[in-house]
Nucleic acid binder design. Structure first.
Length: 391
DNA sequence: CGACGGGACGC
DNA sequence: CGACGGGACGC
């Protein structure tokens, strides 16, 4: 590229190859079974967008699959959604291991390190100097769940430099912001600030456990290896004043049985019970699902709202405010919601100080190679906007 | 004459 | 553990 010798025969410029990473982060890297054919990949990944290329890597001589594949999408948001939805799934019932899905490293980078969410969820934008963080949030919340917004300011005068960051919960949301926001924002992915010192991740973990003992919160972390297959679409339509709780209301134009309801929601660990409520005056299905904890309910709502069951019919899932959520802004238990990659967790602290302490200590730290997100789980008093915290 | 292009975080 | 083919190229 930089040699003066132009493009002779050696270091060729191959448009076909270089376009593999155009636009950036539009190609996914898959670890799959050696027996999964390309047709299955096409079938399972085409719901996420326009597939431009599928390549199952094979041994040059034996032609046997190496259990690796690349799928190129037209857009980065499509690749991100495919990753978010398909990682951890089994493509076939007789597969022994769930598949892994990552955004592929660009070919020119040469690195084989997994691309982490940290690098895919924060965007860097140019904004009018008059913008506040709240203005920024208002402009960019339509693209997804914002974890935080920040603006670069002069440290002495406090005046904006016209540059800002928006951190989303999911890579697909950051990608959609970049793809769809006004061009005047010049939105791009932000370079990670701290070139990760993953060395002390074990320390953070033990710190967390110590704090846990000190303030007696309950922390539950779940591993959701098993996910299901929905072409989840508008997962973002429920950022209203919803009260988070362990109970979910399920509605459908098509009636369902208790067994069917159970089989759907049992996908998420922690299901306590479910029941169907028949409305004799309509043919709609209505049910109530309850989990043992809020984290499971949050995750279930996130994964199953908009799920097609039966195919072609989307079910709606929303929280039922039954008071089971012990969050309290003036009183006792403060809930903290944790997100670590594909895991979600939930903790209760005795007071706001302890909760804030946990947040400042843990938020953004790298645990097991994944960036922790720690937020207050509920804040019904906010007059402006509340965010949905689910991933 | 008259408005384009620029762009990085308190450790 | 689990990372890079195929095709055909400018008058």
């Amino acid at each position: 590229m930089d040699e003066a010798g132009s493009c002779a025969s050696g270091g060729v410029f191959r448009p076909g190859v270089d376009s593999l990473d155009e636009p950036p982060n539009s190609r996914i890297f898959l670890v799959i079974s050696k027996y999964t054919p390309e047709s299955v990949l096409r079938e399972r990944f085409s719901p996420f967008g326009e597939i431009q290329d599928i390549w199952v890597v094979r041994d040059k001589h034996t032609k046997e699959s190496k259990g690796i594949a690349f799928v190129k999408f037209a857009r980065s948001s499509q690749a991100c959604r495919a990753m978010e939805e398909m990682h951890g799934q089994c493509l076939s019932p007789n597969d022994t291991k769930p598949i892994k899905v990552f955004i592929a490293q660009s070919r020119s980078s040469g690195s084989h390190r997994d691309v982490e969410d940290e690098e895919l969820t924060r965007i860097f934008v140019m904004i009018p100097k008059s913008y506040t963080e709240e203005d920024l949030r208002e402009k960019f919340k339509v693209y997804g769940d914002i974890e935080y917004c920040s603006i670069i300011k002069n440290k002495v005068t406090g005046e904006s430099k016209g540059l800002g960051y928006v951190r989303y919960l999911k890579p697909s949301q950051a990608a959609q912001a970049i793809e769809n926001c006004d061009r005047s924002f010049r939105a791009i992915l932000a370079e990670p600030k701290n070139k990760v010192s993953e060395s002390s991740e074990q320390d953070y973990y033990s710190n967390m456990r110590q704090e846990t003992v000190g303030h007696e919160p309950r922390i539950n972390m779940f591993s959701f290896e098993q996910q299901s297959e929905f072409s989840s679409f508008d997962k973002n339509d429920n950022r209203g004043q919803e009260a988070i709780s362990k109970r979910l209301s399920v509605v459908s134009r098509v009636p369902f049985t208790e067994e069917q309801l159970f089989s759907i929601f049992d996908i998420v660990p922690g299901l306590e019970y479910c029941e169907v409520q028949r409305d004799p005056y309509s043919n709609y299905g209505h049910g109530v699902v309850q989990y043992f904890n809020v984290a499971s309910a949050i995750y279930a709502k996130y994964k199953l709202h908009g799920f097609q069951y039966p195919p072609g019919n989307r079910i709606g899932v929303s929280f039922i405010d039954d008071g089971s959520n012990a969050t309290d802004r003036f009183g006792n238990l403060i809930e903290v919601y944790l997100v670590s990659g594909k895991n979600v967790g939930y903790a209760k602290y005795a007071d706001r100080i302890s909760a804030n302490d946990a947040i400042t200590t843990l938020h953004g730290k790298i645990l097991n190679g994944v960036r922790l997100k720690v937020m207050l789980a509920d804040s019904p008093r906010e007059e402006s906007n509340k965010r949905q915290r689910t991933y």
